[in-house]
Design a protein around this nucleic acid. Structure first.
Length: 632
DNA sequence: TTAGGGTTAG
């Protein structure tokens, strides 16, 4: 090919830049990339002085292609770098999930002696907010005050947001007070913080004080109600926003509200959002909304609905696949995860999270060989360096299945130091499989790593109790008494007719309490007739914590078991729903062994499907069986 | 270049 003359270069380069600007405007990544290839083959970009490099850099930044953008940034001669180039790359990193790179660039920029401007403040504070990096955020704020720099409302808003995300409400409010011309964004930043850190009720008072409210403010308020289980309020606000104020929900609002549903476990609002999204967009829902729907349905116990949404998607990226795989994994559908995984490989490149779902699916379903198979191929076949989370999944898988020595060996071979999740998981397995020596050794290490956590003492003490080693169990109790620490109380929530009801162990605060306890008594009788034997082996600590000092009496232990929060929630559900209606319960801790076997029988004798989401997974009880197949 | 609400885990 004949080499174009310099004049040609300049004119072609000008055309290319115009096309790239148009690609940005029309979200046309494909054409821009083709143009980039063409510019390389024709030698247009060989001269780094050309403005084309800068245009390509801007182009990749606008599409969030961080590595391409950074490569081009490096190709711009350093003498040509200006503050716009720096902040464009920093914003690109902050927006696309790499806020630590934004911070690194900020530090680099400072050491290069460049002064920062308002945009630098905004994107760096945004990165600090995302990372919870209060130290740097506050430092930038102090620097601005010290130098007496005059900044506008936008910069103030990002500083406020940084404080809000770092849970420094007083500082955020102080900045808010100082802003003379507050915008709707200033108010919304504070609103979000108040809802999160001071409660949804305080947020509601503030929302009503706001001089102006746009769709973001409405979305924040609604999501706040949904997250906190105020479903009726959320519904009335949603209809006011849409029908009276004529606001639309965009894909961000939809995702935000769906994420609230996941927090509170409410599926009613989630279904409403699903219908809205279908009405707006027909059959093709935005990929992020569809992914949020999959996550919401899966985490609200409706795995079948999640699968329906997933199957209807015409294009599925790695995030969509991960949501589906994770949903199936927490529902104990390990075999399905392994069955659809080859399909995923054809459609998207599996990442770190994919394998966490695959390995935890194997773990929850007891598929040891398959787990080993994928773990051994992580690096060699999929090019993924195993993280500590992968090791934790693997230790969990091996430990649950009784391969404790293999799990222990794996911990020794790990290239990083084990954390409390890895060791805690193995201690749990020692508890199940009665391995004292290993258990004792693990607990010593765990106490060093995480001295505040009392769960490990409880586990080990229960192990001693089960083995009849009362002295050792008692000495551990004394350690806890000295420390004065208390166990996190178990709370179960149940959704009935769009309302959330919460129960703690032995709870008598509900207005229907007497009815609930009558129901409970009757239920225990029916359970006993059906062959249920209370499992009090792990009960000594609960009774102890309930303040029942003479907890040795078997009957007291049984009573404590009977009033576990999930049993109370089930009684409430049975009393307040029609026969055959499935019950959905959410628990903050792991379901105990006794409740697990009791609920299996309850599902049969009351002919109800009962789904319990505990801290780590779902248990769907149906006709005397649990979907976890007792692997948990 | 332009602040606030957003999808996968822990």
């Amino acid at each position: 090919m004949k080499c174009p003359s310099h004049q040609n270069f300049t004119s072609i380069s000008r055309h290319y830049r115009a096309i790239l600007r148009s690609c940005i405007r029309h979200a046309d990544l494909d054409t821009g990339e083709k143009l980039h290839s063409l510019s390389i083959t024709t030698g247009l970009t060989s001269d780094p002085n050309t403005c084309l490099t800068n245009a390509l850099f801007q182009f990749y930044c606008s599409f969030g292609k961080t590595s391409h953008a950074h490569h081009l940034f490096d190709r711009i001669p350093h003498s040509h770098w200006d503050i716009v180039d720096w902040t464009t790359l920093m914003t690109c990193y902050a927006r696309n999930g790499f806020p630590e790179n934004t911070i690194n660039l900020f530090v680099e920029m400072q050491s290069a002696g460049l002064r920062f401007d308002g945009v630098t403040v905004m994107c760096t504070c945004n990165a600090c907010a995302k990372l919870g990096n209060l130290a740097l955020g506050a430092q930038i704020h102090c620097y601005i005050i010290k130098l007496g720099l005059i900044i506008g409302v936008k910069e103030c808003n990002s500083i406020m947001d940084m404080y809000v995300k770092c849970r420094k409400m007083e500082e955020a409010k102080r900045v808010f007070e100082e802003v003379t011309e507050r915008s709707v964004v200033s108010w919304t930043v504070i609103l979000g913080g108040v809802i999160k850190w001071e409660g949804v009720k305080s947020g509601w008072l503030l929302f009503n004080e706001m001089p102006e409210r746009n769709e973001v403010a409405w979305t924040v308020m609604i999501a706040g109600f949904v997250e906190n289980g105020f479903i009726a309020h959320a519904f009335s606000l949603l209809s006011e926003m849409i029908f009276e104020w004529k606001f639309n929900l965009n894909h961000v609002s939809l995702c935000s509200i769906l994420s609230g549903c996941v927090q509170s476990g409410d599926v009613m609002i989630g279904e409403w959002i699903h219908v809205y999204a279908l009405k707006e967009k027909g059959n093709e829902i935005n990929i992020m909304v569809a992914t949020a729907l999959i996550d919401m349905y899966a985490k609200c116990g409706r795995i079948g609905r999640a699968e329906q949404v997933f199957k209807k998607m015409s294009y599925r990226n790695v995030v969509a696949w991960n949501s589906m795989l994770n949903g199936l994994a927490v529902h104990g559908r390990g075999k399905d995860v392994l069955n659809i995984f080859p399909q995923m490989v054809k459609e998207a490149k599996p990442d770190v999270l994919t394998f966490m779902s695959v390995l935890s699916a194997c773990s929850h379903a007891g598929l040891v060989d398959q787990g080993r198979y994928y773990f051994n191929r992580l690096q060699s076949v999929y090019g993924i360096k195993p993280t500590i989370e992968h090791y934790a999944c693997m230790v969990d898988l091996l430990g649950r299945a009784g391969f404790l020595e293999e799990a222990d060996r794996l911990i020794m071979e790990m290239p990083m130091l084990p954390n409390e999740f890895v060791l805690g998981s193995l201690l749990g397995s020692c508890h199940v499989h009665g391995k004292f020596q290993l258990g004792e050794c693990l607990m010593r290490k765990l106490v060093e790593i995480d001295p505040q956590n009392t769960e490990y003492h409880i586990l080990l003490s229960n192990m001693y109790t089960m083995a009849g080693k009362k002295e050792k169990a008692n000495s551990l109790r004394q350690v806890l008494t000295k420390k004065g620490e208390r166990k996190i109380p178990g709370v179960s929530s149940i959704h009935v007719h769009g309302q959330v009801y919460q129960f703690t162990s032995g709870d008598k605060s509900h207005p229907q309490s007497s009815e609930i306890y009558v129901m409970l008594k009757e239920m225990i009788q029916r359970l006993r007739l059906a062959g249920y034997i209370p499992n009090t082996t792990c009960q000594n600590f609960s009774a102890y914590y309930n303040g029942e000092g003479n907890a040795d009496a078997e009957e007291e232990k049984e009573q404590a078991l009977f009033s576990h929060s999930e049993k109370l929630a089930i009684c409430f559900g049975l009393l307040n729903t029609k026969p055959g209606v499935p019950l959905y319960i959410f628990k903050n801790l792991r379901i105990c062994q006794d409740c697990h076997s009791a609920v299996k029988i309850i599902s049969k004798i009351y002919n109800r499907e009962i789904t319990i989401r505990d801290r780590s997974r779902f248990h769907c009880f149906k006709q005397g069986l649990c979907s976890c197949g007792d692997h948990w």
